[in-house]
Design a protein around this nucleic acid. Sequence first.
DNA 1: AGAGATCTCTGACTATAGTCAGAGAAGTGA
DNA 2: TCACTTCTCTGACTATAGTCAGAGATCTCT
Lengths: 317, 317
Amino acid sequence: MSEQARSVRDFNRYYSQRIGLLTDRYLGQDRPLSEARLLYEIGTGASVRDLRTRLGWDSGYLSRSLRSLEGQGLVQLRAHETDGRVRVAELTAAGTAELAELERRSTAAASELLAPLTVSQRAELIAAQHRTRQLLRLAAVTVEVVEADSAAARHCLTEYAAELSIRFPEGYDTRALVDPAEVSGAGGAFLVGYEQGRPIGCGGIRTLGPGTAELCHLWVHGDARGLGLGRRLLAELERQAVTRSLHTVRLGTHRSLSEAATLYRSAGYHQIPVYGDSPYNQLCFERTLADDVPGKAAPSLDPGGVRLQFAGGRRGG
Amino acid sequence: MSEQARSVRDFNRYYSQRIGLLTDRYLGQDRPLSEARLLYEIGTGASVRDLRTRLGWDSGYLSRSLRSLEGQGLVQLRAHETDGRVRVAELTAAGTAELAELERRSTAAASELLAPLTVSQRAELIAAQHRTRQLLRLAAVTVEVVEADSAAARHCLTEYAAELSIRFPEGYDTRALVDPAEVSGAGGAFLVGYEQGRPIGCGGIRTLGPGTAELCHLWVHGDARGLGLGRRLLAELERQAVTRSLHTVRLGTHRSLSEAATLYRSAGYHQIPVYGDSPYNQLCFERTLADDVPGKAAPSLDPGGVRLQFAGGRRGG
DNA sequence: AGAGATCTCTGACTATAGTCAGAGAAGTGA
DNA sequence: TCACTTCTCTGACTATAGTCAGAGATCTCT
């Protein structure tokens, strides 16, 4: 673990050197890097408030930067339609052109970087970067036990239901959603995964009978598929089951969700006869859990390590 | 290509955000990031001159930074043994402790980053980062045709000979090195690969007979093995052969250099009877080249791309 | 020995990226 | 309506990172 941490650290060190060359010298060639970032963040238009949280900047600093871009004719500010306090920044024609130029430049820099590689090496680099990024995104996701009727949980379940109603040929009846009381407290749990504060996945367990849990509503946002979040949520739900002495986990899924069946099979679930009366239970799985669930969550840091704050970002007074 | 460039660019953008959090907030928590970098770069001791080139800093800036670290009791400066102009920076006991603390912190930050991942996901991340870095390093290497008696070429050949004299049970006699005149001009060529200005690999071809070239002294520095540089040098040497109308390339290698034999085989070479009178030619290979050598060097940029300066770094007035 | 190059250092300056306090306008809930 | 909050903005300040010119010591080459 510690050796792996060192490897990650060295990669960061190497990459920050390389990236420094790229971003500093090319992206922001004619203008401060901060202004370039701001232009990029404004994109098709954003409220000052959103920009402030997205960039994590001081309001004074942001205001001044916007004033500067406005002075250069790249940005226009107007009042929000409904909230008179809020101002909305939009790119002017010149600003849009400038952003396009920045994009062109950074893409060209990336092209230049790829140029010396052979075709297969390039493909390999793209794939390795892609996987690196996926795993880093996954590592940045925090999974929390929440109330099933909290805003985050309801948000996820709404998206979940909306997606199923599209994917199931027969549609999806939201009355099939679990009763919040069942996935909470001593008999159940509901988990939500957040990426930078935004809920991007969920899942619940409830007690089905003595020692038996049912897993339900495991869902990952379309943007976040392929990261391995489903697997992580599943492992975490299993841990929740074990702490409630529920050593048998079963679940039903729909025939059209083939990737779900694949996930359960690869996580050690075996198919069982269909149970329950839900019309959406077309394929059922079960698994018996040992007391220590494999694929379990984060072991603690190596002994010498301090606990550092990560998520959120600000210095955390 | 352009899509790949966009993918690389997006990765850079994502990673620079992540990295910003890491380096700014953790590495340089108590002191400016630049001082932390300088401490790291001094390590076990380095001349001011080397630091200047390694960090790419202005001499005034570096001098002042060193003065600051000296004032904090972390660094001591002394004169160079042989060159009175040069000053050498060394960490004091306090400096060494401080560096260890920085290392510990950044390793802990990396640990924290890995924590949410499963064991196999961690291994995957390490592997993907490793490959990413290898390919980026390879992409940053420039391969140039040089005079075989230039400083860079002699440097490589010296290291090459030193390594062979260790690896060959019978040692290596430097009189077996090729005559510089043979690997230059119309009948030959000598290539050196540079990573950030430092020679890290070489190789030559000379004319053996009509239409036949001999490849010799293909070498990659220990630090740079596994990048794919040997393959790149080989491909480039083959291109040089073709431009000289040498369509048959042969070479001899030593039985103890198994990785070399593997490289040649995988690059399309087949074994031939031993030729020549060198005692080190124990395993010989040959390949016939078409006019366009596969695995050839960098295709040009996509049409819209500008040519940007990369190597070297400074703004290039 | 002398010319020219190299190396380090100091002084003076600039640009970028922030931070902090507080004012004033606009919304929100009792 | 009134207290409170939210949002944006301005003024004043600081830290970090860097640039440029030139002085003085030392080395190298002829």
